[in-house]
């Protein structure tokens, strides 16, 4: 079985392993994995994933992953490019539904209810499990309308005053209000990259979700903007369960309480962030954290 080539095919342009000499090595190590090192489960989880497999057409991208997301916690997902961490994240609010060839099996529950059944509605699910994307993607609308978009489509505000209230409080919680309060009518695209990303976070929390998924939210931002977002994530933890995918180990160490390490579609190791970074159990995790491949 040559897992590495398979994955290379799935996500073109992002080599799973950058140093080819190690491929055989890594494959051997991966094949030796039976299940995940560390505790995948938590007490009273917000979301539970059991035996999740993901396929693009007939190529498998995620292999048999078990993982819980706890309440009021930030869980970071790290791993080399193309390891499937983003794909996995997108399972949690069924964003993969929008890709026709993508198929997800296994069980994923939110508050104990399976989200992949027919009765569960993706619209409702996505209102409860919000998502922030890698690149800031404000709509071609004003700042106000960007934030008001979610409440409007879901009918969350009974009148204009309530809507104003929601928009302003969301902008405040995203730490953006003071910077934009004088120009709420300006187009969202007129903001800087970091502001745009905070606008997207404000847009997400305006719907009042229970879980927020963040797919490398700082990868397109400069260090100062990144620091602002990281502070924000830490504040948001009080009210939300947060799952964040990041390619930066430092960021994972700074913002998360637990960390999950993915490699070639498998969940290699998961544990308290501190433990993972100071005392990784699995060789692959150790290799990654010590920077032998990235």
């Amino acid at each position: 079985m040559s897992t590495s080539t398979t994955l290379n095919d799935i996500i073109p342009g992002s080599p799973a392993i950058q140093e080819s000499t190690k491929v055989d090595d890594v494959t051997a190590m991966l094949d030796s994995i039976e299940g995940t090192v560390g505790t995948t489960r938590v007490e009273n989880p917000k979301m539970e994933m059991r035996e999740v497999d993901v396929f693009y057409a007939d190529k498998q991208a995620i292999y048999d992953v078990d993982l819980d997301v706890a309440r009021n916690e930030v869980i970071a997902m790290i791993g080399p490019s193309g390891c499937g961490k983003s794909t996995f994240l997108r399972c949690l609010n069924r964003m993969n539904d929008t890709i026709p060839i993508c198929r997800v099996t296994g069980s994923i529950t939110l508050d104990g209810v399976d989200i992949n059944t027919r009765e569960q509605d993706p619209v409702l699910l996505r209102a409860r499990v919000g998502m922030v994307f890698q690149k800031p993607n404000p709509f071609a609308k004003s700042i106000f309308d960007n934030v008001a978009y979610g409440p409007r489509i879901h009918g969350l505000a009974a009148n204009r005053a309530e809507l104003d209230e929601i928009v302003i409080s969301s902008l405040k919680r995203a730490g953006l209000y003071d910077e934009v309060k004088s120009r709420l009518d300006a187009p969202g695209t007129s903001l800087s990259g970091g502001q745009q990303q905070r606008l997207c976070i404000a847009r997400t929390i305006a719907v009042n979700p229970e879980v927020i998924l963040m797919d490398e939210p700082c990868s397109a931002l400069d260090p100062i903007a990144t620091a602002r977002i990281e502070e924000l994530i830490d504040e948001l933890r009080e009210n939300y369960a947060i799952a964040i995918v990041t390619h930066s180990m430092q960021q994972a160490a700074r913002v998360s309480q637990r960390t999950a390490y993915f490699h070639l579609g498998k969940l290699v190791e998961v544990g308290k962030t501190n433990d993972i970074f100071t005392n990784p159990q699995h060789d692959l995790t150790e290799n990654y954290i010590t920077g032998r491949f990235g």
Binding site: N93, M95, T98, P122, V123, L124, L125, R126, A127, G130, M131, V132, F133, K135, N137, P138, F139, A140, Y149, G150, I153, H154, C200, R203, T204, V207
Partner: peptide
Amino acid sequence: PQSMRDASFGLGATQSE
């Protein structure tokens, strides 16, 4: 850009919305 559609779907909008 697809990212705009993703953002909207991510907020729970239906396709026609």
